[in-house]
Amino acid sequence: MPGPDLLSSQGLRLDGRRPNELRRIRCKLGVFTQPDGSAYLEQGNTKVLAAVYGPHQASKSKTSTDGVVVNCQYSMATFSTGERKNRPRGDRKSQEMSLHLRQSLTAAIKTELYPRSQIDVYVEVLQADGGAYCASVNAATLALVDAGIPLKAYACACTASIAWRGSEPEPLVDVGHVEEAAGGVCLTVSSLPSTRSVALLELSHKLHMDYFDVVLSRAMQGCRDIEVILDRAVREHLAEGWTKQDVVTI
């Protein structure tokens, strides 16, 4: 079942990357002062802002005594896609993304620590160039870290696809918009790489069982690579922001 031609004869992808290369990730923590935590993340041309409010008192209808309620809102700016969007949030796709985002973040947050509380996560996609969901999860994780909310581990998300070099399958990591639009399969994995567990798995098209393992392991490898990048960004942020009082032992 040879798919569309995603690899050149030299083994390079449409945007010139090798199959196992991520797009460039640039990120910054603490971009806003008003929310408790915020982050900006660029993954290639996909640009995402995330803001976290809380934990604060949950509204009466949502309150739960077992743990914190995570409330997510995923919205795409009207100018984020090639064709202008009419509804930035509230359409079916955004609602689905919000639910998926909540699933990934709930897996990472130590929810049992804050009963009767609520954490609001607002994600705004400024430019969508493939993998908007992954960038949202990664940005939201950084924003949660910035807000000082206890996490079990970083939640990282990455996509993977498959291409053919001759008759050999070659998995591709971090699928861009062009590759997505070319009609290949796209496997989205959201995971906690340091605990080796998966929070969310989504497949856009049919994929033969035989190739599923290679694609999944490539996506997991992508998550681990992203975790390293996020960890480095967090450490840089800490190095900038720490004060002497933090280290004083009591």
């Binding site: 870290v145 079990k152 581990a153 970083y154 906690l192 967090v234 720490w242 002497k244």
Partner: peptide, 13 residues
């Protein structure tokens, strides 16, 4: 602040 010496930082996980 001129912080030459950084303390040991810990990150989630």
């Amino acid at each position: 602040a001129a912080n030459n010496e950084l303390p040991r930082f810990y990150t989630p996980g």
